[in-house]
């Protein structure tokens, strides 16, 4: 008796959980492969966490319109997503920077053909504490000298005469993020960022850092600025034309807020588009919805014509 009790008890936990899991199983089955309600295959998306909110919105709507289809989205980061894309594990990968040369090369070696699509725009926002009343704008050179490891700018006074002689506290996204990569490339030409800067993969930490110190300076995605407009102050940036511009959906979209506006991308596996209707439908749906979704989650849509052009490119892949 005791023996059987032991066996029973040993598996009771797992049995309960198994039953719970199986209870949900049959709901999706039975309707067959081909359903009247759009596509019923699956599409695997992975990549940048910056792009994720847009894709989540798209996938949410897509799942409502195609209840039989299975769209899954991971957030392995731009680089991690590329790795899975190269391994052929995903159909679509999101990126907050253009594909690197070595990644393109590895894809070629793996025999994977792909197409790049722009999804939306993000304006990297440079922000300071709201009580910071001295910074009116920054030039690109000033930004570079502040953030560069090999420069002697340590205090605000080093940047411009008359600014307070207080050390600048720097907050930057972590080195795994495409945001960091982009800033490092356009502002620092790929040089070492100031080692005293606090790095965090969580942009909310950067926001808190700036809120906590009058002498702080940070940069992060536009969506995080939009959500915290009352507690941080935006710094207008002098663009290459000499205009002083602050990021808004207009200046990001029309390209005057440069070079800190960056496109967000998604890469599609061409073979997947040809062989898997769901991937094609999903990619098409993404391009149709991207503008609306981008706006909703705090990014800037591309011009309508660009989406239409992309849709034509997608059609040509079929």
């Amino acid at each position: 008796m005791k023996r059987t009790n032991f066996v029973k008890m040993g598996t009771s936990l797992s049995a309960v959980l198994l039953l719970a899991a199986c209870g949900n199983a049959p709901t999706d089955e039975g309707t067959g492969e081909e359903s009247a309600e759009g596509s019923s295959g699956s599409v695997q998306v992975d990549g940048s966490s910056t792009v994720f909110p847009i894709m989540e919105g798209v996938a949410e709507e897509f799942s409502i319109e195609n209840p039989q289809a299975r769209a899954t989205i991971g957030v392995s980061g731009t680089g991690g997503g590329m790795e899975k894309f190269i391994a052929g594990e995903t159909d679509i990968t999101n990126a907050s920077r253009p594909m690197k040369e070595e990644e393109a090369q590895m894809l070629e070696e793996a025999g994977i053909e792909y197409t790049e699509f722009k999804l939306a725009l993000d304006g990297l926002s440079v922000v300071v504490h709201p009580d910071n009343d001295w910074v009116d704008y920054l030039t690109l050179d000033e930004l570079e000298s502040i953030w560069l490891e090999e420069s002697d700018v340590e205090t605000w006074a080093d940047v411009r005469d008359g600014w307070p002689d207080e050390e600048i506290l720097l907050f930057s996204p972590g080195t795994d993020s495409g945001t960091y990569d982009y800033f490092d490339e356009v502002i620092l030409d790929g040089e070492q960022i100031d080692r005293e800067a606090s790095l965090s993969e969580d942009d909310n930490i950067l926001v808190q850092g700036v809120q906590g110190s009058e002498h702080a300076l940070a940069y992060f995605g536009y969506a995080y600025y939009l959500e915290n407009q009352d507690t941080v102050k935006i710094v207008p940036i002098e663009n290459s034309e000499g205009e002083i511009v602050e990021p808004t959906s207009e200046t990001v979209q029309n390209g005057t807020y440069e070079p800190l506006s960056r496109p967000l991308y998604f890469y599609v596996n061409n073979a997947s588009v040809q062989e898997n209707d769901t991937v094609y439908e999903f990619a098409k749906y993404t391009l149709e919805m991207a503008g609306e979704m981008a706006e909703e989650v705090g990014y800037v849509p591309l011009e309508e014509a660009e989406y239409e052009e992309s849709l034509e490119t997608l059609e040509s892949l079929r």
């Binding site: 949900n24 894709m55 769209a71 899954t72 989205i73």
Partner: peptide, 9 residues
Amino acid sequence: MTFIAYTPT
């Protein structure tokens, strides 16, 4: 994944 909108079968 991070986003999934179906019941695993």
